[in-house]
Simulated scan of single mutants.
Amino acid sequence: MQNIIITGASGFVGQNLSAYLESNGFDVASLSLRENNWHSKFDPDAQAVIHLAGKAHDTKNASDAEEYFTINTELTKALFDAFLKSNIKDFFYFSSVKAAADTVEGILDENVVPNPQTPYGQSKLKAEEYMLSARLPEDKRMFIIRPCMIHGPGNKGNLNLLFSVVKKGIPYPLAAYRNKRSFLSIDNLNFAIAQMLENDIPSGVYQFADDEALSTNDLIVLIGQSLSKKISLWNVPRVIINTLARTGDVFKLPLNSERLKKLTENYIVSNTKIVTAIGKPFPVSAKDGLIKTFNSFK
């Protein structure tokens, strides 16, 4: 049985990934980096470290920028150093597509020159750069995972908020925005990590995303299918919506500029590199994964 160390195991991804790996014959051990003595609990003879812990992107923009670098950069560097000194074979670092780009023209792939604009993305990129600059022993592998928006049953966030609005029968007023963006089902994430652990995948940077990018209007239709109800899509002029979002910034309303951007921006992420490396397609389609998530909100 292979022993897998997971940081951030109590979070949404950590709980799901731990359960999935255990069901597939792995022995999972949680490691909390919040504890000052985490080094003493670090097993140097484990099979792999999966580093999920970190400070998430704050959509309200209320976080201290330095906190991102303390948690996302410095803690990651310390954990990676411990990995290099250990007998552990694999290190997985969960970064983010936001370490590469805040906005995307066309389709984002791993060849992009990173240019993050937020402390969150910059702190993730700093950790990536540190890892990529290290000399990796031949018997070790290092994976930098850049997932896009992850979802699944039990996940709270913008998809849950969107579902709540549609469930109340409130017409969706942002139909004038014709966007496409990528999502990542937790089922596909779990599948990819297990495949990487079990197969001879080369070290490197890998983006994780479902096969198909969808518009927010597509999401509204899928929510309607989940609820078995007809949904109203309103094409409210963008100038009005943008004004409301700026008002939300000032008065801390549910619709602010950051949330509007998440709901309406184009952000298409390629998964070609990881799917090619695994040699198998992701098991869950984008729409089926989202329907599963929306059904859980009921």
Score class of each variant (00 low, 15 high):
166 V>M: 03
37 N>L: 10
282 F>H: 12
262 K>P: 06
6 I>G: 00
231 I>V: 15
180 K>E: 14
261 K>V: 05
117 Q>C: 09
31 L>V: 01
98 K>P: 01
289 G>E: 00
69 F>R: 05
298 K>H: 10
14 G>A: 08
81 D>M: 13
8 G>S: 02
48 A>V: 00
168 K>V: 12
239 V>E: 13
135 R>E: 14
39 H>Y: 13
292 K>C: 03
261 K>Y: 11
36 N>T: 12
64 D>L: 15
123 S>A: 03
136 L>G: 02
269 V>R: 12
291 I>P: 05
186 I>N: 00
11 G>S: 02
218 D>Y: 10
90 D>W: 04
116 P>R: 07
126 K>R: 15
243 T>G: 07
144 I>E: 00
146 R>Q: 11
289 G>Q: 01
86 S>C: 09
39 H>F: 14
283 P>G: 08
198 E>F: 01
100 A>L: 15
251 F>P: 05
240 I>S: 06
290 L>D: 12
35 E>Y: 13
203 S>M: 10
219 L>Y: 15
129 E>Q: 13
249 D>Q: 06
65 A>R: 04
49 V>N: 04
249 D>T: 09
96 S>V: 02
296 S>H: 01
149 M>C: 14
189 L>H: 01
202 P>E: 10
113 V>Y: 11
24 N>H: 14
216 T>Q: 01
238 R>G: 11
35 E>S: 13
211 D>M: 15
238 R>Y: 02
29 A>T: 13
131 M>P: 00
72 N>A: 09
198 E>Q: 11
55 K>G: 02
269 V>A: 07
44 P>L: 14
39 H>G: 08
82 A>Q: 06
264 T>F: 06
21 L>C: 01
232 S>N: 14
51 H>C: 05
60 K>P: 01
30 S>F: 10
235 N>G: 13
176 A>Q: 04
210 D>G: 05
238 R>W: 03
46 A>W: 05
297 F>Q: 04
32 S>T: 13
216 T>M: 05
147 P>E: 12
60 K>L: 15
290 L>A: 09
74 E>I: 06
199 N>V: 06
152 G>F: 00
134 A>D: 11
108 L>K: 00
250 V>E: 11
31 L>Q: 02
278 I>T: 10
182 S>L: 05
295 N>H: 11
82 A>D: 04
232 S>C: 14
13 V>A: 06
71 I>P: 00
205 V>L: 09
243 T>A: 11
230 K>T: 12
181 R>P: 03
196 M>D: 10
159 L>I: 11
170 I>T: 07
141 R>A: 14
155 N>M: 06
273 K>G: 08
263 L>P: 08
138 E>N: 10
25 G>D: 05
47 Q>V: 12
119 P>V: 07
35 E>F: 13
53 A>L: 02
249 D>L: 11
236 V>K: 00
34 R>G: 12
272 T>V: 14
